[in-house]
């Protein structure tokens, strides 16, 4: 199995396209870093003396809106207000200023948006990894080895996951290095304030970011799995890339639209891939729980894999 993964890895990294993708990722991070640095040096240091008062004012206005709107307020907004209030109160009690200086942590939080970018490249790899063998005609040489088709496909899927991890690692590591070089390390460790189930807890920033990266990459893993499934079942990389990217950009929006009207939207994959909604916002459809979402993700995952393996194992390689 390790040899098969080695093979797939070799086939990915012998192509120039892969280096272009990595280069693009690094380039975007550098541009982002430069841009933030430029803006940062021009902006004034926030006034730090009166922050407690500011937060109190903020909380009062939140509270006022909550009571004024009453039942008319959307649950999502209500939850985010409550969250803000709780965190602000916690800050005041524990003497934690929100006006910390922009540091490597801030930069890492900003660059985590780039996970979608890394996801896009993983989707491209996933979409090509089976379909390309058919296009190149090499599938005929690949499948007449003393290795079962299922094992070859499994090796390919694991390679996709590894590549995804590799891209995430590059993103995280390069952002960290770049962030430290440009913005430095904060003098004292700043904790992340986590609000879950009505209470606020302090969390180490590093742990929080790893968590954040992990949860955000679920969406990317599911889309890559889908692209892989289309690639294995339909032997068509363009279809796999096209459909997966379309759903990557539109899937969430479409689901949100459907969710306004129909409750069954909660069974759509994209209502469930964003597990952060349970920690930092409100679920897309009322009544959804994190357990439900995890179950749905597993069901979709197994479905994609079942289709991919079933079709790939049965397929007559005729072309």
């Amino acid at each position: 199995m390790i040899k098969l993964i080695q093979n797939e890895w070799m086939k990915i990294f012998r192509r120039t396209g892969t280096y272009v993708m990595i280069g693009l990722l690094l380039f975007v991070l550098i541009v982002m870093g430069g841009f933030i640095k430029y803006q940062d040096s021009k902006g004034s240091v926030p006034d730090n003396s009166e922050w407690k008062k500011g937060l109190q004012v903020q909380n009062e206005s939140y509270q006022k809106e909550l009571t004024e709107m009453g039942d008319a307020i959307p649950p999502e907004v209500k939850l985010s207000y409550e969250r803000e209030i709780a965190i602000n109160e916690y800050r005041i009690e524990n003497d934690l200023s929100p006006n910390e200086e922009y540091s490597v942590w801030g930069f890492l939080t900003d660059t985590s948006q780039m996970i979608e970018f890394a996801g896009l490249f993983t989707i491209i790899i996933a979409a090509g990894i089976v379909a390309s063998e058919f296009n190149w005609g090499t599938i005929k040489l690949l499948l007449i080895r003393p290795i079962k088709r299922g094992k070859i496909l499994a090796a390919k899927y694991l390679t996709v996951l590894l590549f995804g991890l590799f891209m995430l690692f590059i993103l995280f590591a390069f952002s960290a290095i770049l962030g430290m070089a440009l913005f430095g390390f904060p003098n004292e460790a700043v904790p992340y304030l986590n609000y879950y189930d009505g209470s606020v807890t302090e969390q180490s920033m590093l742990l929080h970011l790893i968590n954040y990266f992990g949860l955000k990459s679920i969406n990317m893993i599911m889309l890559a799995t889908m692209a892989f499934m289309i690639s294995a079942a339909f032997r068509n990389s363009s279809l796999a890339i096209g459909l997966s990217l379309f759903l990557m950009f539109m899937g969430g929006q479409l689901t949100r639209l459907i969710a306004i009207k129909y409750e069954w939207a909660k069974y759509i994959l994209f209502a469930n891939t964003d597990l952060l909604q349970y920690f930092e916002g409100a679920p897309m459809v009322e009544g959804m729980t994190i357990g439900f979402s995890i179950t749905m993700i597993i069901v979709y995952f197994l479905l994609f894999q079942a289709i991919a393996f079933y079709v790939f194992k049965k397929r007559d390689v005729a072309a």
Binding site: K3, N7, R14, T16
Partner: peptide, 19 residues
């Protein structure tokens, strides 16, 4: 049909790993 973007030797290593 071989992997055109690799050398002949790399192609052989690729298939050798599978036996």
């Amino acid at each position: 049909e071989m992997y055109k973007f690799m050398s002949g030797y790399q192609n052989l290593v690729h298939f050798a790993r599978m036996s």
